[in-house]
């Protein structure tokens, strides 16, 4: 594989090894999680404004949503 190919241009096929069913009585399809879990296992694709640091912006989101823990992936300098 050409290692200079951006990950978002790679096309992958699915190899099926075996078939099985999933029990609906536990777990949940991500898009159908109840609100509390939807937030808890959620991410925000945020358009960072210029000025504040990534860390500050994340802290603002934390305050807006009144949640305990927040993180961000890939610092964008102020």
């Amino acid at each position: 594989m050409n290692r200079n190919v951006a990950p978002w241009t790679i096309h992958r096929e699915t190899l099926v090894k075996a078939e099985d069913k999933t029990d609906p009585s536990y777990g949940c399809i991500p898009e159908e999680r109840p609100a509390a879990d939807y937030l808890k296992f959620g991410i925000i694709n945020l358009d960072k404004p210029a000025g504040p640091s990534s860390h500050e912006v994340a802290a603002w989101v934390k305050r807006i949503l009144k949640i305990e823990h927040i993180g961000h992936g890939g610092t964008l300098e102020a």
């Binding site: 808890k40 959620g42 305990e68 823990h69 993180g71 992936g73 964008l76």
Partner: peptide
């Protein structure tokens, strides 16, 4: 600097290392 900043809430902060990669 502006643009896409993935923000992880509560449990999803566990994926931060993957986002960095």
């Amino acid at each position: 600097m502006t643009g896409v900043l993935p923000v992880t809430l509560e449990e999803s902060r566990k994926i931060v290392q993957a986002l960095l990669l």
